[in-house]
Write a protein that binds this DNA or RNA. Structure first.
Length: 508
RNA sequence: GGAGCGUUGGUCAAGGGGUUAAGACACCUCCCUUUCACGGAGGAAUCACGGGUUCGAUUCCCGUACGCUCUACCA
């Protein structure tokens, strides 16, 4: 019987959740759900110096907004709790000691100053950043160079130390990446990474394998930036005796900045004017607020859809996918190998498409809140919904609704008189007087009824309908925007329509 | 410097030994519409470069260039 699929997303709670992070969550989630597996959220908070209060709750909220709820997490709990590495501290030390006992790792007593010294001492033209590896470890203070007695003594004295992995000489370490195929490394070229830090906390390298093992993770997906340290992880799985349980790896391509080169960062968003975080994030230290996709007015469906196809494509022409379709079609093998530059215009296009295809009831609450913030009162819920339906095809972001729809509930404060004035004349003013009179007695107050009457009257007065539509629009909405004028008139009602015309006539 | 990974129009990308090399976003032109949007028609690539292999390579192999990631007691 096949093992039950279990995947995990393991962020550090250090700040806002980045686009790339959400995409990693998404691919994990899609993969798990497709195979009837479980998706776990694990918090990697082993670096106490980088801990940011609120970041963990923020991540949970982002996942909830995206609809990518984990099956197990610090919040939900689960059979492999705890899901916070800081709460699993003791279990890592045991394995670090095991590795030392087996001769696969060693104690290193070098101080940070000594390490800095080493880095300048061994720096050469050919080796600009010397590493703590099989050559230099013989020249440092560790349990490989010190006598047993000295080591014991140091340990007894409580001198701080770290545990480093002892990389073997000239071995080929290889594995099959689900996206990249076979990848090979020569062990001599990999450094002796720290496994257990001076404060007793594990580094990522130790923690990720211990936790993936103990949580029975079957597939491990992470960003491409982890590829160079993969050999360390592979070796750890071997040394700990768990190699047959090792998850299948996939290293996801990076999301790059739109201009120039490099990984997309929060600063690029600030600089180029688009969000990088899923939701608003306020740095608790500086109080600096970074706008997120949610608050900018993205629908979670659109956000997810956009991210899914940034680096993945099912081979057909389809671009718009529901989450269920994504679950059905997703395949790790079809994920692109190269990084993708983020295109905010395309992201907005996805949102526009999703607003068009989503029933207004779904985003009505958010839009209503936006209206309230702009002092526009909505009493008639049914009308509100109808209005949203009729204007949604011209809204890209949720806040666009306030410009596109507020005039349905509130007469325009200012009229774009300048757009009417040049072609305005007495005949046209007369036309609107007459139209008002006819409106008063019009029984069929529907868009088509109004349109018919309006056009008939125009014909009678021998004025081109086209020349009257723009003034009519300005009268009703105040500017050159909004849906078809007759639809607007029908929705705001007879009395309001006539009022607005009468008022506008005093302004033209 | 080293290691690893990557490279199809401006961007996201399909495809894959023989094709007119899909599609989408953006951009430009036009149509529709005297608002905006939608919708419709049209416009751009000798598939990084150089060698092979082959009857034939954008597709396979090898180099080169370029880019990215890593090179912390951060993840």
């Amino acid at each position: 019987m096949e093992k039950k699929v279990r995947v995990r997303f393991a962020p550090s709670p250090t700040g806002g959740l980045h686009l790339g992070g959400v995409r990693t969550v998404l691919y994990n989630y899609l993969f798990a759900k497709q195979l009837g597996g479980e998706f776990i959220l694990r918090i990697e908070d082993t670096d106490q110096t980088r801990f940011v209060p609120g970041a963990e709750e923020y991540i949970q909220e982002c996942l909830a907004w995206c609809g990518l709820t984990p099956d197990e997490s610090p919040l939900h709990g689960g059979p492999y709790a705890p899901y916070r590495q800081s709460e699993r501290k003791e279990m890592y030390r045991q394995y670090a000691e095991q590795l030392v006992a087996q001769g696969n790792a060693y104690y290193a007593f070098d101080t940070p100053e000594e390490l800095d010294e080493m880095r300048v001492k061994f720096k050469t033209e050919e080796n600009t950043s010397p590493q703590y590896n099989l050559q230099v470890r013989n020249k440092m203070r560790n349990s490989l160079t010190l006598s047993q007695g000295e080591v014991k003594q140091l340990l007894a004295e409580g001198v701080p130390y770290v545990v480093r992995i002892k990389m073997p000489e000239n071995e080929t370490i290889s594995f099959t990446d689900m996206i990249r195929g076979d990848v090979e490394f020569n062990s001599s070229l990999v450094d002796d990474k720290v496994l257990l830090k001076g404060d007793g906390m594990p580094t990522y390298h130790l923690a990720v394998v211990v936790d993936d093992y103990s949580m029975k993770i079957t597939h491990a997906f992470r960003g491409e930036e982890w590829l160079p340290s993969a050999p360390v992880h592979i070796l750890l799985w071997k040394y700990l005796g768990w190699y047959k349980e090792m998850p299948q790896w996939a290293h996801l391509p990076l999301i790059m900045k739109p201009d120039g080169h490099g990984k997309l960062s929060k600063r690029d968003g600030d600089r180029l004017g688009f969000p990088v975080f899923a939701m608003n994030w306020t740095d608790p230290k500086t109080n600096e607020l970074t706008t997120g996709f949610r608050e900018l007015g993205f629908l979670p469906e659109a956000f997810i859809n956009m991210l899914a196809v940034l680096g993945w494509n099912d081979g057909t022409e389809q671009e718009l996918f529901t989450i269920d379709e994504l679950i059905e079609r997703f395949s790790m093998e079809k994920v692109h190998k190269g990084g993708a530059k983020f295109d905010f215009e395309k992201a907005k296009w996805f949102n526009h498409e999703w607003i068009k295809r989503t029933p207004a009831t779904a985003f009505k609450p958010q839009v209503k809140k936006l209206f309230e913030e702009n002092n526009i009162q909505v009493e008639d819920e049914a009308k509100f919904e109808q209005v949203l339906e009729t204007v949604k095809e011209r809204c890209t972001l949720l806040p666009d609704f306030v410009q596109q729809a507020s005039f349905f509930f509130k007469a325009p404060q200012t009229l774009d008189v300048a757009s009417v004035k040049p072609k305005w004349n007495e005949d046209k003013a007369r036309f609107f007087d007459i139209v008002c009179e006819k409106f008063t007695v019009l029984e069929d107050w529907t868009a088509s009824g109004i349109e018919t009457l309006f056009k008939e009257t125009a014909t009678e007065k021998a004025i081109k309908v086209g020349e009257l539509q723009l003034p009519f629009r300005i009268m009703l909405v105040g500017g050159k925007f909004g849906p078809t004028v007759f639809d607007i008139a029908a929705l705001i009602g007879k009395v309001e329509t006539i009022d607005r015309i009468k008022y506008a006539l005093t302004q033209f």
